[in-house]
Amino acid sequence: MFLTSRRRMIAGALSLAAASALAMPASAQEAFSKPKDQVKAAFVYVGPVGDYGYSFAHDQGRKYLEEKLGDKVKTTFVENVAEGPDTERVLRQLAQDGNDIIFSTSFGFMNPTVKVAKEFPNVAFDHATGYKKNDTNMGIYNSRFYQGRAVLGTIAAMMSKTGKAGYVASFPIPEVVMGIDAFTLAARKVNPDFQVQVVWVNSWYDPAKEADATKALLDQGADVITQHTDSPAPLQVAEERGAVAFGQAWDMSSFAPNAHMTAIVDHWGPYYVEEVQALLDGKWAPRDIWGGMKEDILEMAPFNPKMPDDVKAAAQKVIDETKAGTYEIFTGPIKDQNGELKVKDGEKIPDGDLLKLDWYVEGVKS
């Protein structure tokens, strides 16, 4: 996730990808330049498809792919794959099983994907949220999740009575740090004294740990809960305690009809269709994609009807301006936790720096 340049996900990128195929080794070039009648596509998930969060969203993308391409694609998936050696084993087996393309969907799958891709140059690999690729058979794709976090931060500050939010976080990687900072920056645009307390659970999916972290945050005075973990447990605790909360990666309102104000929804399906269609057409080549609201990789779940009208209007304004390209949350002045100016007034943090972000903005308590 630390590359210094990203291309937008647009249809025209396929023609660029076809041109780059000329640089491929002969065997890979032949594999990807020959049209296919059907593509076998495999997906590897870090959590269960029933988490109703990140892995669930990717699986909805898989189903979208099947819906759009019908019998031109045959899909399979493996869920609950641990990041590390187990990933390598699963990827290698899927490649040996004759899959034409393999989507490895978690940051911790990156290095195993790099290794296995080298072993199977005639298989296409796509890795989500990482920063390593090659020009032969491994591309990367990502979502600007932080754009949605800015919407959540705006809502949080407007609805909080204590001026304090709790953030249930998974791992301290740039993607998560980026989200914490975006949420806090947006909240402090509304309330300059707003505070965000972070609790790390060191897991993407652990309902018990997530619930305990939420309870601790609420006990410490937070009345808004947000999360970068994948179970609905934080929402369920917030519902019981009368707090405001947000879903993760998908609309989780069914678990907390009163607490759930909205959620970031990961919309991976169109990208999966593009990649498989490129293989069908004999035009596939590794790409480097980082899209957001404008590119329809990211959208927001419907607002809770109980949300005040002025809050809905403010949140929608952030969405509309983000899509229009006139709202960028990482625009200075921005200070870090210690009050040191990190980004000057009017300057924007470049994508390359965002993708290796390792510091917290003012207002974050971690």
Rank of each mutant, 00 (worst) to 15 (best):
M178P: 09
N202V: 00
K164D: 12
K335T: 05
F183N: 02
K115D: 11
E67F: 07
V311H: 08
K132W: 14
A18Y: 13
K348V: 00
N134K: 13
T113I: 15
A18H: 15
K133I: 13
D37L: 06
K115H: 12
G163Q: 11
A41R: 05
H228M: 05
K335N: 10
A150I: 01
D71S: 15
P174Q: 12
Y146K: 08
V114E: 10
V273R: 12
K335E: 09
A187E: 05
K118H: 12
G221S: 05
M110Y: 08
G12H: 02
V176P: 02
L65F: 05
Y64R: 09
K356R: 15
K215M: 14
D193E: 14
G291I: 10
V311F: 03
A11K: 10
Q29I: 04
Y54W: 02
A128N: 13
E299K: 14
V224A: 04
D135L: 12
K40I: 01
D212P: 12
A169N: 06
G325I: 05
R144Y: 02
S170N: 03
I10T: 11
V73W: 02
N202T: 08
G53T: 00
G98Y: 02
S15F: 14
F246C: 01
K63V: 09
T162K: 10
M158E: 11
E274C: 14
R92T: 07
I329W: 09
I101D: 01
L279G: 00
E83T: 05
S170E: 03
L341Y: 07
A315R: 08
V311I: 03
Y64H: 10
A259G: 07
K344G: 02
D309W: 13
Y272A: 06
K36C: 07
D358Y: 15
L69T: 09
K283S: 13
L69A: 12
Y146L: 10
F32G: 01
G84M: 02
Y45N: 09
V276K: 05
V343A: 04
Q60V: 01
F145N: 11
K215Q: 15
A314Y: 07
T154G: 05
Q337V: 10
V244G: 02
Y146P: 08
E66M: 13
A169Y: 14
A165C: 10
V201G: 04
A26E: 10
L65T: 09
G148P: 02
P270Q: 02
A169P: 04
Y54P: 00
G363E: 01
K209G: 11
E30Y: 07
T162H: 08
M159N: 09
F56M: 01
R188L: 05
G70I: 09
